[in-house]
């Protein structure tokens, strides 16, 4: 098992600097050859939505930025399935979590360019347990 740093990104883009701070910390870590894995959890999953139009508030598009992760050798990208399901249940008012999870991932246009693995709670625990270090933003 190789050593890796796990970065957990838990904030929606734009409201705060957290999403960017997580992203830049990840890029910084790859600079010294540290293996980095990136997990979207909680409101962090909103960073993956394709319909982001932040130009109106003069911000950079987070979904576009995330597409550059593989150029910094960050290939292991994970999305917490429970975080997605809960949010889409809340938004849609319906409780078929799995359907909304699927619908959500259909909306992630970057998924063809950015291969993200959807992980359940158990896989998530393993991912965290095996990490050498964890930084959470």
């Amino acid at each position: 098992m190789s050593a890796y740093l796990l970065i957990i990104s838990t904030h929606a883009p734009y409201h705060s600097s957290f999403a960017m701070d997580a992203y830049e910390a990840a890029l910084g870590a790859t600079n010294v050859g540290l293996e980095v894995r990136f997990l979207f959890q909680g409101n962090g999953v909103f960073q993956l939505l394709s319909a982001q139009t932040p130009a109106g508030i003069q911000h950079k598009n987070m979904a576009k930025k995330l597409k550059a992760l593989p150029l910094f050798d960050i290939e292991d990208i994970y999305v917490c399935s429970k975080s997605v399901a809960l949010r889409f249940e809340a938004i849609s008012g319906q409780n078929h979590a799995q359907n909304y999870t699927n619908e959500f991932f259909e909306k992630i246009s970057i998924s063809d360019e950015l291969e993200a693995q959807i992980v359940n709670e158990q896989e998530l625990n393993i991912l965290m347990a095996n990490a050498s270090h964890i930084l959470r933003f």
């Binding site: 600079n31 576009k64 550059a68 150029l71």
Partner: peptide, 15 residues
């Protein structure tokens, strides 16, 4: 235009 990021050297070389 693609990544909304000014490329640092490593990313530029790889791309």
């Amino acid at each position: 235009e693609t990544y909304d990021t000014s490329p640092a050297i490593r990313a530029l070389v790889k791309a």
